[in-house]
Design a protein around this nucleic acid. Sequence first.
DNA 1: ATAATAAGTTAGATTGCTCTAACAAAAATA
DNA 2: TATTTTTGTTAGAGCAATCTAACTTATTAT
Lengths: 220, 220
Amino acid sequence: MHSYTEENYLKAVFNLSAIKGEANVNELSRLLEIKMPTVNSMMKRLAEKGLIVYESYKPVRLTAKGEKAAALIIRKHRLTEMFLVEKMDFGWDEVHDIAEQIEHVQSPDFFAKMDELLGFPKLDPHGSPIPDKNGKMEWTEYHKLNECKPGDTVVFKAVIHSSDDFLKFLNARQLRLGTVIKVKSVESFDGTMTVEYSKRAPEMLSQLVCDRILVAPKKK
Amino acid sequence: MHSYTEENYLKAVFNLSAIKGEANVNELSRLLEIKMPTVNSMMKRLAEKGLIVYESYKPVRLTAKGEKAAALIIRKHRLTEMFLVEKMDFGWDEVHDIAEQIEHVQSPDFFAKMDELLGFPKLDPHGSPIPDKNGKMEWTEYHKLNECKPGDTVVFKAVIHSSDDFLKFLNARQLRLGTVIKVKSVESFDGTMTVEYSKRAPEMLSQLVCDRILVAPKKK
DNA sequence: ATAATAAGTTAGATTGCTCTAACAAAAATA
DNA sequence: TATTTTTGTTAGAGCAATCTAACTTATTAT
């Protein structure tokens, strides 16, 4: 239906929109590593196809149709990541690039089978929600580790902006989803946190790191 | 390294060459459903890249380099088919189109993992050999069911030119790899064979069918 | 051997996706 | 507010992969 290329643009718009509800050409250009004029003309194409709303000099937004199309690609991506981790023994830091390719496979049966073999998972290996077959997706209300105060005890629920490097960083510190983290102190100057988890010596995490870790209060 | 498109041409040349050692533009054109002039110009491109030998008005041949490149794509295709059948419960008649897409995935790790999880298989679900990591492949010396004589007892070893339709035809008759087939009679007029297998009533198979079934003598 | 048919080639156009260079609008800064 | 910087757009070119139309060579049939 849509080309490999169009799918990638759509996904990029979706990912950028996730934060602000809209995406601008400049950021898309950086994200996709494609020059602005190229992105610009593709935006017009996507607009003609009714996938996004485009107005000159304004950020673009996904239409309902575009949102659904994008979510269904994300669905394939996240199901694939889950499959690679759960059924093929890959690490959560090894699956992104492979999923990036397999997400473009056209075969409803293939992804339906993955879904079934995985027991219809709701989350991917990084804690992100997997959109359903209709492209519906909901984020559980997590908050950033950053926002926690000394004394808080929370559970590591998801990673945002998860690059392979960042995931390897977490691996090296045995930080994984489900880990219970106790916030010992927060350096007010630069936001560095001292935390404790898994019966190890306290660990210091920079603000940059804490900004990418999503947590939920530990249930009693 | 090579584009998606180039990979498909290479594979087509490989498949056609399997029989005659060379491939002509006309047949490639039919096989790929791409018009002759397009095929022609792509042949020149592949020749420039040192993947095939091209001379005007002559059939093309793969170079050693081209042969290896093609075999490595076939390897990915057949490993994928095997994975889909063995690890994902697909039927042998459902895997071709999916494998056709996944064979283009660039990730040595992904296919190495498949290979490992499958226990380093030598054959795909249709009995075709899986080329090794160096692109080396060898066909065991099977012969066609067509060539058998009344009284022969043989084992079904592989399917050639296996379209999904043909595989469904075999499914409907419970003919699968490993089935022991007894040749009862051969109609000299049109080559139709009457065969017996799996304690069922004798079955009649047309010459067209018998030409696509590879067998080996049953060992005592 | 000649004519007819099939196969292969050349030329030129089209579409998708990319680029650079130049220009215009919007936002930030002085 | 005026200037500078950033962001966005237009114009025009290039390459990969495709096509159709016209032509040439090879093969087959008469």
